[in-house]
Amino acid sequence: MTASDISSVLIIEDEPLIAQRLGRMCEEILPSGCPIAFAPETASALGWLNTHAADVIFLDLNLKGEDGFDLIRHLSSYAAQTIVVSANTDRAIEAFEFGVVDFIPKPFSMPRLSAAIERLFQASPPGRTALKYVSFRIAGKVRTYRVEDIISISADDKYSQITMVDGETLFHDKALGAFEQRLPDRFMRVHKSHIVNLDRISAFRSTPGSRYLIELEGGNSVPVSRLQAPVLRKIIV
């Protein structure tokens, strides 16, 4: 996936000139015709997201005195990737823990915004704070879980199905690839459709026909690709 694949952008910014700047630059970076929506505060942003899909969200953390982290928590339950654009950089690490792709400090320039959009399609750079929490929208409410409590993540069409340590299985709007880029090192994509928490593996075994399988806490099994089997075996042994 590249910038040309981005089909929709939401800019959440309460200052018109700054929103205008973000929109103007996005128009230059993204393919022409890519729709760009604007929301000056949380309520209108969430209202828009209920009826539209966005690939990227640009978020100002300081919206009319509201705590932007409530919104980040909420936004992390959507398929869209979030880029924070804020003057207040001292909470960047906290933002990354919720899966924010990049944190652009104000004032910003075109190259900096362009670099942030590039990062949407790259794995987190070494040393970058990994995803620590993941949120789900369940029955109209947002619930947040610790990533370390995830046993496995499986692809379900363009969404993900996540199995938690308590046996609960939850669906998330994000694709498997989006998770893979932000998860901590103890998570591994063992198959094109499965990511597992290495700390939750009970057994690794081969089955007839040179197939490989890992058994996870809770009794579920996940197939392992031939390519990843030797790597996984080395890690486990």
Partner: peptide
């Protein structure tokens, strides 16, 4: 920072 961003724009 917001003021400076506005100036830049």
């Amino acid at each position: 920072m917001n003021s400076l961003t506005t100036v830049m724009e």
